[in-house]
Each structure stands twice: as C-alpha cells, then as structure tokens.
Design a binder for these strands. Structure first.
Lengths: 212, 212
DNA sequence: CGGAATCTTGACCAAGTTCAAGCGGTGTGG
DNA sequence: CCACACCGCTTGAACTTGGTCAAGATTCCG
C-alpha cells in the first residue's frame, strides 16, 4: 500500500495506543504549576510519567537560544523514557498539570510495555520529522491541529494549552508565521478561532487533504 | 547541565550503542542489490534487520511525490522495528547490501534489548528533528557529515553511499542547496571533496561548532 | 483602568527553491 | 579509439516562502 493511496488520517494515531500500555506498577501523583520544570537536560533518567491532567512540553535548546520542542503530551499520555542514563531534553508543565510518576523499578519490570511506548514515541517523532522536513507553514499547522484533535479522540473544538511560541518551536517556524498560517486557515473557513487558544475544526477532511 | 555548555559531540552517538544490543537469536543473511526494496509501507512488521555491509535508507512519500528520508543505516546498525503491525515506511538498499535478518520469534524474546534499540532510534529521530527544525542549510550538512563520521568511529575520510538527492530528502533541502552548502564548506576549508562522494573532514572542531 | 503579555498584521529582507544551463565521468556503439 | 548520450553533480539567475523588525490589537489581571 502506497502513501499516495492512503487517507491522511492514518498518519495520526489516537492516544489510546499510548494510554493502553501504561505501566500498572505502584506510583505517586505530583502536581506541577504552569511553567514548572519536570526534569532538565543532564538529569538522571530514573522516572517516567503519565499526564493525568494538563499538558507538558519536551524540548531542547541550541547554544544561541533557538529552541526545538520535540513533543507535547496531553492527558493520558506517557513520557520521560530516554536512551542512556541522562536526560537529553527538558520537560516542563505548560499549564497546571498533574502527573503519575513511575519509579525505576516499575520501569525495569515492564520492558515489554515500555517497548510499545518507545515504538509509539518513535513513530510520532518520525511523523513529526515528515511534517517539519517536507511541509510548508500552512500544512504544518494543519497537521498539528489534526494531530491534537485526533489525540483527543477526534474532538472538533480544541483548547490549545500551548502558546504560539511553543507551537512555532514545535513546528520549526516563528510566532508570526504560525499566526499568519492560522489566519489563512480561518480565511479559507477550514477552522474558526473563538479566541487565539480556542480552535474549532470546521472541515477536518479539507484540513487532512492539505497535509496528505 | 545545559545545552549551551555542552560540546557538540554529545549530540552524536557512535553506532556502538546500536550494535552492542543486537539480538543474539538465530538469523539468516540476505543480499540486496543497489536500489532494491527491503520492505514497503503497508507490509507486515515481522522481521528486523542488521546491516552487515552496505547502507540502507528508510523513507516515506507524500502523495505529491515529496520524499522524506527518515534514517540511513550503516554497517553494524539495526533497523526495521516499528510500532503497530504494518510498516509505515519504505526501506531500500542504497548500495549492494548484506543484511542479517531476525524473525518475529527473536523479536518477542528480546524485548529488553529491543527497548534499548528503540530508545536509541528515538534519540536519533529527535536529534534529527532538531537539525531539520532549527538549523540552516550549511549547519544541516555539517551535522550530517559529523554524524556519519561519528557513526563510523570518527573517521576523517568519508565515502558517501547515498546520492545528493538522498541527502536532500534526509535534511529537508533540495539537491541544489545540498550542493551549494558542500561547496561553501569546501571553500571555507572545513572539508575537502576528492569527488562528489568522497569527503575528507579537515576541521572536525570547526564543523562541530557550526552545528552547536 | 492601566499595564503587561500574547497575538496579529504589515513592510522589507534573506535563505532556499525553481528553472535552466553547463560540467565531468562512464558506458555504448560505430 | 573516438563520438555521443546519459547520469549525477554543480552553478547561475529569477522567484517565493518564511524570517525579521516594527507597530498595533486583544486579552488577561491586578
């Protein structure tokens, strides 16, 4: 089956696949205020996390201050596992966030389940690479909005927890370009903006065909 | 530890980490001619592979023909594991290539080892994302050449198995831009080109500081 | 109400793409 | 052995997209 013949939906997976493989071991719950650091680059990798409520960004900085957001994590999704003993990224709460925290022990006991999570993360990263590597600004925003929607079960009404700057750093654009792309999608009636953070997807199909 | 204070080397890992975790189960060896398909999008995921000699590209196509190469795999490196039951990418031999092929059984028995591989793949994909998302053409080429060099133990003399088109599709550029960037690096005496496919890295340090 | 973020819009600029032509090595046939 | 065509790579010129800089609009909150 070739890419050309596939509907765009298959590019984006609902978060169930991530949620379903959560580690059943013992864990505690912690609350993080908006903007608070969860772990930093260089920290030992010894926990992994599941978002209960709220949202998280994982990112990296270049020495000149450029930032690349590698992933966002919404309610139900897991993150924090990395190759090696040290984190290579920063993780921060975007809004007030509650996390279930799993210790090293649970991690070792569930390599089977973690493998599924890691492979899902890999698939996401590679899909993201496709978007950032080969699509224009409007296509990137379309793919981003669809992805967010699909990860929440296909809801039409989206509340964006992240700022334009976060989105820009995730998609490899600037805030201005993100803003202009949003405006274009609005003008074409593919989406509607109640306010900057509240997006309604009017024509998911059309949005979809934009990003293939 | 912050990104700004780290030498760029730490961004690139030698392939040992991939090689060392290879699955010790039974396997057969197959030979692929240059350009031959190893698996296609939509194929069932039931094997995984280790490159004995040669090189492999893993990529995806958009409906309009744009191609994103997601990864290259050199001698010693493993690939082919993906989330879900179907491949979402194509894999092809770039040059004449010999592969060790592992069956589904070995895969299930070694989830521990595969987890390490998957996490390494994830780290690579995220590093690649950083390059494609936030660096300019010359920086991308510099990062690419350094990565290739480091994956072969830091050799200075590189034989590129892939074409300019492959590199362009890997870095999210066009062949022309790849060519111009190479020329610029040559003019600055950071690299030397014996011919288009044979690169000598003259100043690894300078190349490194280019891509942070 | 005032002030600070955050977001949007406009005008200009630069990096990269597109289109087109030329170069250089390789392989084939007369 | 040379002529020629082919392929991959390089180079140049015009164009386009997105970035930069600057100014305004909107929202959020004290």
């Amino acid at each position: 089956m070739y890419a050309a013949s596939q509907p765009a939906e298959q590019s984006f997976q609902p978060s169930d696949s991530v949620t379903s493989a959560s580690i059943p071991g013992p864990h505690l719950v912690a609350t993080y205020k908006s903007g608070r650091e969860i772990y930093a680059e260089g920290d030992a990798v010894e926990k992994c996390y599941q978002v209960a409520t709220g949202a998280v960004r994982v990112y990296r900085l270049l020495s000149d201050g450029r930032r690349q957001v590698v992933s966002f994590h919404l309610a139900g999704e897991m993150f924090g596992f990395e190759a090696g003993v040290e984190h290579r990224f920063f993780a921060e709460a975007i809004t007030e966030t509650r996390l279930a925290v799993f210790g090293r022990r649970s991690i070792q006991e569930y390599s089977r389940e973690l493998l599924a999570l890691a492979l899902t993360g890999l698939a996401r990263a590679q899909q993201h690479l496709l978007v950032v590597g080969r699509q224009c600004a409007v296509e990137r925003i379309a793919a981003f909005l669809l992805d967010l929607s699909n990860r929440q079960g296909g809801v039409r009404q989206l509340r964006l927890p992240m700022s334009r700057q976060d989105i820009a750093d995730y998609l490899g654009l600037t805030i201005e370009t993100v803003s202009r792309a949003m405006t274009k999608l609005k003008e074409r009636r593919l989406i509607a903006l109640r306010d900057a953070r509240t997006v309604e997807i009017m024509r998911p199909d059309a949005l979809c065909s934009l990003c293939n």
